[in-house]
Write a protein that binds this DNA or RNA. Structure first.
Lengths: 203, 203
DNA sequence: TGACTAATATGACAATCGTCATATTTCAGG
DNA sequence: CCTGAAATATGACGATTGTCATATTAGTCA
């Protein structure tokens, strides 16, 4: 059995990263926040903090993509978008606008803590590749859902990028304003755009 | 004369923040990166790092809003959008996709470095208020430009939020992918949305 | 039960952080 | 030139960071 301690550390790291970014999340914070033994860090994550962050990014990616894919196939593009936005709004309001997206945090922050500049660069590139993969994953789910409803491939790709990027930006802005108003506005405009794009192919 | 050292520190802090976030930007990095005297930090910024970050946010906000406002009034909404996107693309490509938006970094990161949790909360809230003010400033420039071309107030507000949020998110995603492709896609869709919204009022 | 590995506990290490006290330099105004 | 304030230089402080070495416990299979 893979230790539950490991999973708790990963989930806790993702949560802390979503609240304060990569460098505001210390290993001591993770064990404090998750009530896990500090002595097990190097045992479960022999590559140290960069490994924990990397696994937290992948974890956060799946945590979003799995329900997103289900909502897209069950309720269509518009319904999937609504579920996507609703999950972010729930997270924002449940935490008093303290928690955002840990993947965006990895994309924005530079990981510090390597000894040489060479290792620092490769570690940073690895984390960025993982974040990029998560974003690409979310976009592809949106992309295939749009294709399924008849959109042209290039248009579907552009719209998928717009949806993911705008919601990522909006979530961060909502944290700054401590209000979900921006999320309401963006949701409405995205629904309008998607509905118009889908209506054009349906006629 | 207000010291040029002070301005260089603020600009350098904004630059480093846009590359690695708030907590990856140390005061020693700022003086190293800007070749400014380390002994002058507490002289020019008696409130320490939080003051430097705060001034860097305001600086970065004006650095964007001033040319944005000019482009909006000279070239209209579509032209202003293109100038807005182009300036971000230039920044991304000129730095090898290392530099992003320092205001987004403040919105994503939690500032650590205060002694008490009480001071930490108020300092964090202050920085978030500044970041929120910058975003609101950019949105309002877009908002008034849309009003000037005949859009209804609520629609103009929603579109302004969509534009700022989606571009902020896209810039971060472009850093992760080390490619400006997402920026191209988002720009095209935003232009389509704005053109359609403006055409409806023009008829 | 005995043995062996996984898991956790504990303390220490060097490095870096923001900040501050103190000393020195720079330089405009009398 | 003199003076006083602004600006810079320098070193140190305590606190925190990631990491690791060592020791102890837990748990599982023979």
């Amino acid at each position: 059995m893979t230790s539950s301690t490991r999973d708790k550390m990963i989930a806790g790291a993702a949560d802390l990263m979503s609240r304060g970014g990569v460098n505001a999340t210390s290993m001591r914070d993770v064990v404090r926040h998750t009530a896990t033994p500090r002595g097990s860090i190097s045992h479960h994550f022999p590559d140290g903090k960069r490994q924990l962050i990397a696994e937290a990014v992948v974890f956060a990616g799946k945590q979003v993509s799995i329900p997103l894919e289900k909502a897209m196939s069950e309720r269509g593009v518009i319904g999937g978008l609504r579920a996507f936005v609703a999950s972010w709004r729930r997270r924002l309001e449940a935490t008093g606008f303290e928690a955002g997206c840990p993947v965006l945090a990895v994309a924005v922050d530079r990981y510090v803590g390597e000894v040489s500049d060479k290792d620092d660069d490769t570690a940073q590139r690895h984390l960025l590749d993982l974040a990029d993969g998560v974003f690409a994953d979310w976009q592809q789910i949106m992309h295939t859902a749009l294709l399924r409803e008849g959109l042209a491939a290039e248009r579907a790709e552009r719209l998928a990028t717009l949806v993911v990027a705008s919601i990522e930006g909006t979530v961060a802005m909502c944290r700054a304003s401590r209000s979900a108003a921006a999320l309401d506005q963006v949701q409405e405009e995205l629904e309008t755009v998607l509905a118009a794009a889908l209506a054009r192919t349906a006629k």
